[in-house]
Nucleic acid binder design. Structure first.
Length: 597
RNA sequence: GGAGCCGUAGUUCAGUUUGGUUAGAACGCCUGACUGUCACUCAGGAGGUCGCGAGUUCGAGUCUCGUCGGUUCCGCCA
C-alpha cells in the first residue's frame, strides 16, 4: 500500500521548522471541531503535534470530520506558527496546516481513552496492553529499559566479561522456589524445568575457565506474587573466577554507577556502604533497610531494661527467650486514629497489639502500659530511647526475629504516614554476612539460607566441621555460621544477591551433611555440578541483579509491571493472551499427560 | 495456604452505613450548531445481567453464604 511516509516524528517540529512542508504519520489522539476549523492532535511515541484543517479545503475538511480517536493517518502540510502557542507541549508553538490527510487505518472505539493521565484500571490496561503502551509514559519506560540494556552490555564488555547463553530447558532442582515444568514428548513422564536462575551453569562456566561470565536473562519462579515480583523476570547474572567478595562488589557497583550516571546524571559515591545482616536486622528490622528515612528511626532493644517487670505481655515474651524493642518517632502529631491504624497493621503481622508511650509537650505521658510498669522501668525506657517531650515510642514484644521485622515494618509505615522518606536521592548499600543456614520451623530441619553452594566464612569453618556430623543436635551452632553472601539494597528494595561459592569438596560435603542430603541425593540433584568440581574448580563467586526492579527505581515506581511490556497479574495470568490456557487433548496425549480433577 | 480492599453504563466513580419511586454523574460514543481550539464550547440522544450463584425478605445494587476476577499484605520467593 502506497502512502505518504513521514518526514518527521510527531515530537520534533519546532518554530525553527516554520515554512517547511512535512508529512507526519501517527494516531489521532484528540479532535477539536470548531465548525470552520478542525484541530487534530496527532500522536506517536515521540510526542504530539497539532494538525490544523481549514474548511476552505473541502475534501480534507470532510475527511477530517470523519476521523475517530486512534485512527492512523498520514498528514501533509506546511509548518506554521500558531496564532496562540500552547506552552504545555514541546511542539506547542507550531502546527501543521494540512493540505492532505490520508486515513491509513480506522479504529473501533477503544475500551478506554488513551491519555497520559490514564483512568482505566490495571486489569483493563493489561488486557489491552497495546493501547496502554501508546501512552508516552509507559513507552518511555520501555525506552529507558532499552537504554539500560545497552549501558549494561557496554560496561561488561569493557570489564572483559563474556556473554554466554545458558539453557532455558534445564534440569529441575526441588530446592528453593517451585519450578515451572515443561513436559518432554520424547521422554514421556520426564520434565525439564525453566531456570529459577542459571546458577549451576554459570558455576560450571567458571570450571570451564571462562573466567568472567555475564548474561541478561529471563528467570522463572512459580511462587506467589507481589507488586515487585513477576513469575518471569529479568536478571543481570554474572559470575567471576579468582575473586573475593570485594571484587564482586566493585564490578557490580561499577555497572550500577554507569547506569545512574547515564540515566539520571548522578555520580554515586564508591565504594557503597556495607552493613552486616545482624546489624541491619538489629537497627532497621530488615535485611533491606531503606536508608532514606529522615531521623533513621532505628530500633532500640529494651529487653534488659524491662527484664524484671511483671507486666505479663513483656514477661511472657522474655521468658520464652524473646525480646522487647521499639522505635522512637519525634516531632510528629500522632493521633489516636494513627495509633489505631498502626495497631490494626501489626495485628495483620500476627502481633497481639502495639505498645506505645507518648511524651506530651505539657510534660504528661500517655500510655496504656504505664500502669503496669514500675517507675524505675519507665525511667529506664525513657533513658534507653533518650525520649523527650513530643516523642512517641512504639513497642513490640515476642520472638526476636518477628519483633525486629515487625518494627521494621512499623518503621516503613511511619515513614509513609509522615512522609519521612527523602525521595530526592537513592541510597545504596551492601548487606553481607548473612547466616549460612536457617532453621525451618515447618519441617524442623536446617536449610540453606541462600543456596547449598554458598561459602561459609573462614572463621566459621570450624563450627561447620564440628556441627555437620550431627546437625540436629547442633542447630544453634550451625545457624550461627556466617556465609560469604551478600545483597545489594537500594531504597529498601533488594536489587540483587550473590555469594562466593564453595569450590572445595570437603566443605561442600560438610554442607550437604548439614542439609541431610545423602550421597545418592547429591548425585541425583547436583551430580553434574559436583562432577565438574572434581576437575579443578577455581575459587569463584557471583551476583544477580534484578533488572526489573532497577528499571522500576529509575522510573520512580515500585510496581515492576510498569516496566515490563507484557506483565502478568498477581495470579500469574496474562490478561492479553489469556495464558495459561487449556491445550488440545492431542497435545496432552503426545506428552502422555492426563489431567486429574 | 491466610487476611484486607475493590467489582454498578464503553471507562472512572457515587449510591451499600439505615433494604422501598423510573439506579445517577463525569469522560467517551451518536446527532446537530459553531473559523483559533488545545480538558474547545453549546444543544439533544443512545447506553445497565449492579462480577456470578444461592439464600433471607412482601421487596435486594444495598443484608447473609458461596464463588470468580483484580489488587495489597502475611506465609512463600535458596
Amino acid at each position: 500500500m502506497k502512502f505518504a511516509k513521514r518526514t518527521n516524528t510527531c515530537g520534533e517540529l519546532r518554530i525553527s521548522d516554520a515554512g517547511k512542508t512535512v508529512t507526519l504519520n501517527g494516531w489521532v489522539s484528540q479532535v477539536r471541531d470548531l465548525g470552520g476549523v478542525i484541530f487534530i492532535n496527532l500522536r506517536d511515541r515521540y510526542g504530539i503535534t497539532q494538525i490544523t484543517v481549514n474548511s476552505e479545503f473541502q475534501d480534507i475538511y470532510n475527511s477530517a470530520k470523519s476521523l475517530g480517536l486512534e485512527f492512523v493517518i498520514s498528514a501533509t502540510g506546511k509548518v506554521q506558527q500558531r496564532t496562540s502557542a500552547n506552552p504545555n507541549m514541546p511542539t506547542g508553538e507550531i502546527e501543521v496546516l494540512a493540505d492532505a490527510i490520508e486515513i491509513l487505518n480506522t479504529s473501533e472505539v477503544t475500551p478506554f481513552v488513551v491519555e497520559e493521565d490514564i483512568k482505566a484500571s490495571e486489569e483493563l490496561r493489561f488486557k489491552y496492553r497495546y493501547l496502554d503502551l501508546r501512552r508516552k509514559k509507559i513507552a518511555d519506560n520501555l525506552v529507558l529499559r532499552s537504554n539500560v540494556y545497552n549501558i549494561v552490555h557496554k560496561n561488561f564488555e569493557r570489564e572483559k566479561f563474556i556473554e554466554v547463553e545458558t539453557p532455558i530447558l534445564m534440569k529441575s532442582t526441588p530446592e528453593g522456589a517451585r519450578d515451572y515444568l515443561v513436559p518432554s514428548r520424547v521422554h514421556k513422564g520426564k520434565f525439564y524445568a525453566l531456570p529459577q536462575s542459571p546458577q549451576t551453569y554459570k558455576q560450571i562456566l567458571m570450571v570451564s575457565g571462562l573466567d568472567r561470565y555475564v548474561q541478561i536473562c529471563k528467570c522463572f519462579r512459580d511462587e506467589d506474587l507481589r507488586a515487585d515480583r513477576q513469575p518471569e523476570f529479568t536478571q543481570i547474572d554474572l559470575e567471576m573466577s579468582f575473586v573475593e567478595e570485594q571484587d564482586v562488589f566493585r564490578v557490580v557497583e561499577g555497572v550500577i554507577c554507569d547506569i545512574w550516571k547515564e540515566i539520571k546524571g548522578v555520580e554515586l559515591k564508591q565504594p557503597f556502604r556495607t552493613m552486616s545482616y545482624d546489624e541491619a536486622m538489629a537497627a532497621y528490622g530488615s535485611d533491606k533497610p531503606d536508608l532514606r528515612i529522615k531521623g533513621e528511626l532505628k530500633i532500640v532493644n529494651i529487653t534488659d531494661t524491662v527484664r524484671n517487670t511483671d507486666f505479663k505481655v513483656f514477661a511472657d515474651a522474655i521468658s520464652a527467650s524473646g525480646i522487647v524493642a521499639g522505635i522512637k518517632l519525634s516531632g510528629q502529631d500522632v493521633t489516636r486514629k494513627i495509633i489505631d491504624g498502626l495497631t490494626d497493621y501489626v495485628k495483620t503481622l500476627k502481633f497481639g497489639g502495639l505498645g506505645y508511650i507518648k511524651y506530651n509537650s505539657d510534660g504528661t505521658v500517655s500510655s496504656p502500659m504505664l500502669k503496669f510498669l514500675s517507675e524505675e522501668i519507665q525511667a529506664g525506657i525513657k533513658n534507653d530511647f533518650s525520649a523527650e517531650a513530643g516523642d512517641v515510642l512504639f513497642i513490640l514484644s515476642g520472638e526476636k526475629k518477628k519483633v525486629l521485622s515487625g518494627l521494621g515494618n512499623v518503621r516503613l509505615k511511619l515513614a509513609e504516614q509522615f512522609s519521612l522518606t527523602d525521595e530526592t536521592r537513592d541510597e545504596f548499600l551492601w548487606v553481607n554476612d548473612f547466616p549460612l543456614f536457617g532453621f525451618d520451623e515447618e519441617s524442623g530441619t536446617i536449610v540453606a539460607e541462600h543456596h547449598a553452594f554458598t561459602m561459609p566464612h573462614d572463621a566459621d569453618l570450624a563450627k561447620l566441621a564440628e556441627g555437620c556430623e550431627d546437625p540436629g543436635a547442633n542447630a544453634e551452632l550451625l545457624t550461627s555460621i556466617r556465609a560469604i553472601c551478600y545483597d545489594m539494597v537500594c531504597n529498601g528494595s533488594e536489587f540483587g544477591s550473590g555469594s562466593i561459592r564453595i569450590h572445595r569438596g570437603d566443605i561442600q560435603s560438610q554442607v550437604f551433611n548439614v542439609l541431610k542430603l545423602t550421597k545418592q541425593e547429591q548425585e541425583e540433584k547436583f551430580g553434574f555440578l559436583l562432577g565438574a568440581f572434581k576437575y579443578g574448580a577455581p575459587p569463584h563467586g557471583g551476583f544477580a541483579l534484578g533488572f526489573d526492579r532497577i528499571i522500576a527505581t529509575l522510573c520512580g515506581t515500585k510496581d515492576i509491571r510498569e516496566t515490563i511490556a507484557f506483565p502478568k497479574t498477581t495470579s500469574a495470568v496474562g490478561l492479553m493472551d489469556n495464558s495459561p490456557s487449556p491445550v488440545d487433548e492431542r497435545q496432552l496425549k503426545d506428552l502422555g499427560i492426563t489431567i486429574n480433577g
